[in-house]
Each structure stands twice: as C-alpha cells, then as structure tokens.
C-alpha cells in the first residue's frame, strides 16, 4: 500500500522554463507564505525571455506555483504590463493620463504614431517597437512622459523622438 500524506505536485518544467527562470521564481516564492503570491513575479521573470509570455510559460508558472493554469492566465491578463502576445524588442509606454494630457500627450502620441507608422497596440514591421498607452507614470512634473522598456523619459517633445529612439536598436 502507498500512503501519501504529502502530495507535492510533480513538477516537470525543465523543458518549459530555463534553469535561471526556475531559480529566480523560487527566489520570489520564498518571500511569501503561499507560493501563489509569486505569480506576478514569475510572469515578469518569464516575460524577460521574449518580451511576452507564451502559453507554455503560463503553464510552466502554474505548475511551479502549484496553482491552476486558469488562475495564472487570470492574473496574466489582468495586469497591464504582462503581455500575452508578441511585442516588439522595445515597448514604448506613453502616459496618457491627465498631467501628461495637459502637457500635450495626445500630440506626442500622434507624433509617435506617425514616426513609427503604427497605432496603439501595434508593433513596427521590423519588430523593433510596440506602442501602448499607460496610465500615469508618476512623473507628472516632467510631463509629457514616456517609458521605453525600463527607462522613464522626461519632458518628451515630438522633435526629440527620432533621437530618443536611436538608443533602442
């Protein structure tokens, strides 16, 4: 007879997640009394690989945390900055909230769209940029503001755009 009082789910994620990803997710799991809490951390970790999270990664995260895939998907699709579709190499987040709006974010958005030839939610054909709106970046004293990847850019003007984007190959 087999007595199973401790039924840890058998996790087979080695072929879905990289060793580094697994290591990093485990690191965050230790921060909380319940591994579920690391779901957002984990999604951000796996998102680093390709800039977005694919189905297999969602399943991998679910397995690691011992929660349902649907729970992970529910989280992944709730938050603004987890991407469940491919994005460009760089994601441009343009703050369209009130302070930036007052300082001309709509013109800036139009300028960016013109320059990149895409609209919100789209990726340039060369796969370089995806453009998304974002709510207040907490940088209102330096409006209008955009965020490219991890960089917050202050007082952005339409004229600066070509030069600013050069840093993001």
């Amino acid at each position: 007879m087999m007595i199973l009082t401790d039924k840890k789910p058998r996790v087979q994620i080695e072929n879905i997640l990289t060793a580094q990803e697994i290591h990093d997710i485990e690191h965050y799991m230790h921060h909380y009394p319940d591994p579920r809490a690391a779901s957002l951390d984990a999604l951000k970790i796996v998102q680093k690989r390709n800039g977005w999270v694919d189905d297999a990664q969602v399943a991998g995260v679910a397995q690691m945390l011992g929660i349902a895939v649907t729970d992970v998907e529910g989280v992944a699709t709730f938050y603004n900055r987890i991407y469940r579709q491919p994005v460009g190499r760089h994601v441009i987040l343009l703050c369209d909230s009130i302070a930036c709006y007052l300082m001309g974010s709509e013109d800036l958005a139009a300028g960016l769209m013109d320059h990149l030839g895409i609209r919100y939610g789209q990726t340039t054909p060369d796969g370089r940029f995806t453009l998304l709106p974002i709510c207040c970046l907490g940088n209102c004293d330096k409006a209008p503001t955009i965020m490219i990847d991890e960089d917050t850019l202050d007082l952005v003007s339409i004229q600066q755009i070509p030069e600013l984007l050069e840093d993001y190959a």
């Binding site: 189905d55 969602v58 349902a68 895939v69 649907t70 998907e73 529910g74 699709t77 709730f78």
Partner: peptide
Amino acid sequence: YKDYAGGTDLGVYGSASNVYFGREK
C-alpha cells in the same frame, strides 16, 4: 465551477469592461 465544485479549467480573464469567462483555450 472553481470555488464550489473544485474545477480548475474555467477562469476569468481580462479586466474592466472586457472580462472573459471560459477555459484557457
């Protein structure tokens, strides 16, 4: 489905006026 019957393959996705109830696929 989840809380009462213990199912795992039906969830809620998205947010705001775009919430979706269904399976993952």
